[in-house]
Simulated scan of single mutants.
Amino acid sequence: MEFFNSAIEALKTLVTALGAGLGVWGVVNLLEGYGGDNPGAKSQGIKQLMAGGGIILLAQQVIPNLSNLF
């Protein structure tokens, strides 16, 4: 059971890092859109930023509940 709990923690860390990376990429696109007055890049940036935040929220709230399934 200890292996399963450590695997869940590793998955939580990995998914959180993935969400943070997507959020950072979104911020870069957002700033690029504001710098070049590009509405397409601004839209893409805000979408990526929100998706990154959603993935982080998923990692923090849902993945730890996997240990309760077994």
Rank of each mutant, 00 (worst) to 15 (best):
A17F: 13
G21T: 09
G23L: 14
I46H: 01
D37Q: 10
N29H: 11
N29I: 02
D37M: 09
A51E: 06
V15H: 01
N65Y: 14
Q60F: 13
V24E: 06
G53M: 13
K12T: 07
N5I: 08
A10M: 10
K47H: 11
T13H: 02
Q48N: 10
N5E: 07
L22M: 10
G36V: 09
F70I: 14
L11C: 03
N38A: 06
E9Y: 04
T16E: 04
L49I: 13
K42H: 00
A41D: 00
V15Y: 00
E2C: 04
I46G: 01
L30Y: 15
I8K: 04
F4D: 07
A51R: 08
A20C: 04
Q60A: 13
L58A: 12
E32M: 12
W25K: 10
I8G: 03
N38I: 03
P39S: 02
P39E: 00
A10H: 12
G19W: 03
S67D: 05
T13L: 06
Q44T: 15
G35E: 08
F70W: 14
G21R: 06
V62D: 00
T13I: 07
D37L: 13
F4R: 15
L30P: 07
N29W: 09
A10G: 06
L58I: 09
A7I: 10
E2K: 11
G23F: 15
P64S: 00
E32P: 15
L69K: 08
G45I: 07
M1G: 02
L57N: 03
S6H: 14
K12R: 14
V27W: 15
K47R: 09
E9N: 10
G33S: 07
S43L: 11
T16R: 08
A17K: 14
V24T: 08
L30C: 07
L11D: 01
A20D: 07
N68A: 11
D37I: 13
Q61G: 02
Q44W: 13
V27Q: 09
N38S: 10
G23H: 12
L18T: 01
T13K: 09
V62T: 03
G23N: 09
L30D: 08
G26Q: 01
E32N: 15
L30A: 10
G54W: 05
G26H: 01
N68M: 12
L30E: 09
L57S: 06
L22S: 03
T13F: 01
L49Q: 06
L22C: 05
Q61C: 03
S67L: 12
S6D: 07
